[in-house]
Design a protein around this nucleic acid. Structure first.
Lengths: 275, 275
DNA sequence: GGCTGTGAAGGGCTTCACAGCC
DNA sequence: GGCTGTGAAGCCCTTCACAGCC
């Protein structure tokens, strides 16, 4: 079915930039850790370091939420935890259904991060009759025939798709038809959903390919080789032999997270080269 | 972040924007599907639709690689598959080690997307002696004592961390010391790495939290709240003196498109880790 | 006529740097 | 003195729109 088209101008959510929203969970995690150690306050510098971002960005992010800090002092940990949780909508419990209980689905079902962060596994669903009733991570698997009933009765609005790519779109369509409006897709497929439905995807092979791209580049511009890795000169196979250049940095990394930065030193390579 | 590193103007490694690199795997997947159906050529419009992006963006992306299309006709599928594969460094085989063979690690080990896309699982490593020798997805698990040896001997430059958060940093340190320069991290932790090492992370709870944020907004702005368990009514700050400055208006149909803007993560198997 | 390739315009996010308050 | 909050500048990416070629 593949309903309507997917892309829209991707507007900002409230006044909060999407990029900021994506970092709030990071701050929340760091704050939770501080909270557990009973640390009362943190400076933007400390928190930023713990979350793996720079302090200016963190302060800017928080400024979208309001003025929750105290100049000359920092931020109250507990208060911030509360504010961010509220902003993310974690003060309520979101029931989630996981469809496709294979290796991955089972891994997700057993993920401890659910309960602790505002989510609850409402049901595990699989199309294989042999799986029905079998408990996975303590939760009995239900047959996909009951998908609509489950979603409707439990008021589920978030669904996780961990099925093979081939059936992902149909599963998606059924979830949406039943009332789900947010989907986390682990299947390597582009899902089509009606307007108003959010889809986020996680794809291992894409991540690896992005790493391979950078890896290839490193191999090509190692010290000594200043010629670009153009069409010719295929790089070496297993590119080990590369020794860590700089020493471990103090407390934080230069970059991290899903945002990848670019780093290659390299001068200015003209852009591209036709074959 | 005050990493010892000075921020250099974000060098353009070559001419390809990071955002474009993150989309190349998407195009490649769509092209591979077309190739299997023996489709000889595609227009930017068709391919863009299959990849879930808009055609202008796709053409711009390809323009960074070179002029591989034919005006009035479109792109030659096979040729593009080759060019993109080469650009991503997939014409060579990258050995990958997966550390932490729990539910997730096992799921990753069994992921078929590896072999088919330029990657090869060189080894599965786990710290539990009971796991040693046990085959997972047909590959015998090796003990972490041998991590350095494995990485060195197989010339592994890409490592996947699927361990509990608590040991992720040490595993990371060992991988890097042994020669790994690209890491895909599934543990919910910010990893510190020396300059020159790439880290990408995949985190289930973060993705869910972002969805929850948007979900909450939908519930709040739609007349007949249907999905959520309780139509999330924005709670008031706990006796805060300061209230969010920005007005609560602006309710565009925000929502992110599937391709998400940040930096492009998404893959086939994702993440997660017990906390 | 059809479709690619691309300069130019437009937005959003990051970084700077400093004013403002403790 | 220390640290937050934020306008302003800069950068990168996306989108537009059309020139260029088949």
């Amino acid at each position: 079915m593949a309903t309507g088209r997917t892309h829209r101008p991707a507007t900002r959510s409230r006044g909060i930039p999407e990029a900021t929203v994506a970092r709030l969970p990071l701050y929340l995690r760091a704050l939770t850790a501080l909270s557990e150690r009973s640390v009362p306050t943190v400076s933007s510098e400390e928190l930023a370091s713990a979350a793996g971002v720079n302090s200016a960005k963190l302060r800017k992010d928080f400024s979208y939420l309001g003025s929750y800090g105290t100049r000359g002092v920092g931020y109250d940990v507990e208060y911030l935890v509360y504010q961010i949780s509220r902003e993310l909508g974690l003060t309520q419990d979101w029931p989630v259904v996981i469809v496709g209980i294979g290796n991955l689905g089972a891994a997700l079902a057993g993920y401890g991060g659910f309960a602790s962060r505002g989510f609850r596994v409402a049901a595990l669903i699989d199309a294989d009759p042999a799986m029905t009733g079998k408990p996975v991570a303590g939760i009995p698997v239900q047959h996909s025939d009951d998908l609509e009933k489950i979603v409707t009765e439990d008021g589920v609005s978030i669904g996780v798709i961990a099925t093979p790519a081939g059936v992902a779109q149909q599963v998606c369509d059924r979830l949406v038809a039943a009332g789900v409006t947010s989907i986390l897709n682990f299947a390597p497929t582009v899902l089509s959903v009606p307007d108003g439905v959010d889809v986020r995807k996680v794809d291992l092979s894409i991540e690896l390919q992005i790493l391979a791209f950078h890896e290839q580049r490193k191999a090509g511009e190692e010290p000594g080789a200043d010629s670009g890795p153009e069409a010719a000169a295929p790089a070496e196979p297993a590119g080990a032999a590369v020794a860590p250049p700089a020493a471990r940095t103090a407390q934080d990394s230069g970059r991290t997270a899903q945002d990848s930065g670019r780093k290659g030193p390299d001068g200015d390579m003209p852009a591209v080269m036709p074959a």
